[in-house]
């Protein structure tokens, strides 16, 4: 028989401080500061005293910086390697193709920052000025911030636990001189943990316009999408839609399309229908997408004739439409 852990009262995940102990009841709970788990916690005194808890001191600065950012979009996925960063980069490039628009890409995948490589700016470094850290610019209207710009070498591992990652994310939001932005696209690591909770908490006041979920067609990946949708519900983020990546592959030899990651349960489309989430579209697997990412060039510009380019552009148009910008 399997012993199932009966979950004790589940705290609102966004009310658990990042440095809280294992069984933190959440700062909003009646038990805050009084539960057994609170003994020894750095925040115990603050929680136990009934004084209104002060918000994170970084929040006013973040609100200030984000006041000049019109739209904030998160890119999420349950599994790793499904194409989040590639999609983020294409989205950034597509937004920036309009010279009137200012776009920013923020990479909060602290342990595996891929954005600098995909955008072809891996060798760049961050410069700081009186107004804060300057983003690295891919082109005049596309600024990027990633922990990848801060490492001495791309081989270096960032072995950080949650609180340290949260600290950096908070700095990315308050210390980076983003300027006036029409779009800020946030690339996240896979899963639903520290980085995701932090970005949601930090941007609560400024507001997040929504999240785009990326998946591959097979059931193993879709299960994690269900968790991702569940997460968005829990923390109150609007799901803008679901993108199915690596959907079908056209053999360069015989031109026949086959399913590498077979959608044995109907793929993302069916999942979208079941969960009431908008299905944004399917991007076929084109080996040149991965190549473009490796060489840091824009796939959309390099291969405008590929069916994958058409799919990407349709999805991006649809996204703009949903956001009310088209």
């Amino acid at each position: 028989m399997l012993a199932v852990q009966r979950p004790t009262e589940v705290p609102d995940p966004s009310s658990v401080p990042s440095n809280a102990p294992e069984h933190c009841p959440g700062t909003e709970s009646e038990l805050a500061g009084k539960a057994d788990a609170c003994n020894g916690c750095a925040n115990q005194e603050i929680c136990a005293s009934n004084k209104p808890k002060g918000p994170d001191p970084a929040l006013p600065f973040i609100r200030e910086r984000m006041s000049t950012v019109k739209r904030k979009i998160l890119v999420l996925s349950g599994k790793g390697g499904v194409g989040k960063s590639t999609f983020t980069a294409q989205l950034g490039w597509a937004f920036a193709a309009d010279e009137q628009l200012q776009t920013g890409i923020m990479d909060v995948d602290i342990c595996g920052p891929s954005i600098p490589t995909i955008l072809g700016i891996a060798a760049e470094q961050v410069h700081s000025s009186s107004s804060g850290w300057s983003p690295v610019y891919v082109q005049d209207n596309l600024g990027v911030m990633s922990v990848g710009f801060m490492l001495p070498s791309s081989k270096d591992a960032v072995m950080w636990r949650g609180p340290k990652k949260n600290g950096l994310i908070s700095q990315f939001l308050k210390d980076v001189d983003w300027g006036d932005l029409d779009y800020l696209v946030v690339d996240t690591p896979p899963g639903t943990s520290d980085e995701h909770l932090s970005i949601v908490q930090f941007l609560k006041e400024s507001g997040i316009d929504g999240a785009v979920l990326i998946t591959t067609p097979q059931e193993v990946a879709l299960q994690d999408v269900r968790r991702e949708i569940n997460f968005c519900k829990k923390v109150g983020i609007r799901v803008l839609g679901l993108v199915e990546n690596m959907s079908g592959f056209v053999c360069p030899g015989c031109k026949t399309e086959s399913q590498i990651f077979k959608p044995s349960t109907g793929g993302a489309k069916r999942l979208a229908e079941e969960t009431g989430v908008e299905f944004l579209g399917a991007v076929p697997l084109d080996p040149r997408i991965g190549k473009s990412a490796d060489y840091g060039v824009s796939f959309l510009d390099e291969y405008p004739d590929s069916p994958a380019t058409a799919a990407y552009l349709d999805i991006i148009d649809r996204l703009k439409h949903i956001l009310g910008d088209a």
């Binding site: 995940p13 809280a20 294992e22 069984h23 933190c24 949650g162 520290d194 269900r226 968790r227 991702e228």
Partner: peptide
């Protein structure tokens, strides 16, 4: 199976 596990580090550690 669709439940998300929204835990920060210390809980995962436990």
């Amino acid at each position: 199976k669709g439940d998300s596990v929204v835990w920060r580090g210390p809980k995962k550690n436990a």
